[in-house]
Amino acid sequence: MIVVTSLVVENATVVRPLGPAPASRGVPRWLRKAPTYIFLTIVAVASVYPLYFMVVGATNTSPDVLGSRLLPGGNLFANFRALVAAQDLGGALWHSSLNAVLTTIAALAVCSIAGYGFEVFHSKGKDRVMSLLLLAMMIPFAATMIPLFRMFAQFGLLNSTFAVILPAISTPFLILLFRQSARSFPHEVLEAARIDGLSEFWIFVRIFVPTMRSTYAAAAVITFMNAWNNFLWPRVILVANRYQTMPMLISNFRAGYVIDYGVLMLAVLIASLPTMIVFLVLQRSFANGITGAIK
């Protein structure tokens, strides 16, 4: 091990130590990497196991699922037929998708510009406002649900998609996420753009947004997932159940005296897929580091 004489982190640059560069340790690279691969594989397998169980469960009969059968069965189509016969699967997927997509778009737009505003133009006053806004997420929803419901009822907005998504658009969490990310946004770039005569709003749109692609990707995945899985509020605000969502559909399946676990596993598998797909698509943004936009 070579002793690092001075490894000081300052303004994102590392002051070079005085010593020479490390010599090769004489161990093949693949062997040095082996513990990493083994560790990651163990974590990955443990992470995927319940998903595997769900996939296999969707192909099995109810008694087989109860018996924790781990091999695929031949009951997938029967389960699917039972699922669509009992519930409006297409409708639930559509309503959930609509809620999740609209919420994600609106939330990213509203919260990212706010987070940017908080950080790039930060002042004591804005920091105080930020900390005040944080209080909004610290109370359990079960406590504010009834007053919120009463408010929507007074406005005649019960049973509307609008009422489902409105409370989920502006969240302290997303604002904080963008505020924290904006901290690593280089101020030299900002200044250069200002000198070029770009207005503050277009600096945000043309420079900040593309630079912070990975933050947007993370925010989109999390917001989509939360909106997709949101249960209590849609269940209550959609009093007449006209726009049943996937979590509501699954809840219906669990309410009977006799639960068909094969069908249930298929339903929860279908309900879990969209978030996974969204992640799979967006995770590429976590690969390349800062893109050429600012260099």
Binding site: A114, G117, F118, T144, R150, I169
Partner: peptide, 27 residues
Amino acid sequence: RSLTGWIFLLPAALLICWMNFYPMIQA
């Protein structure tokens, strides 16, 4: 610039006041 910052965070802040703080006061 400070004003621009306030304008940027206004929509989010207003929504939180309306959707969170008002019900929180009721609670």
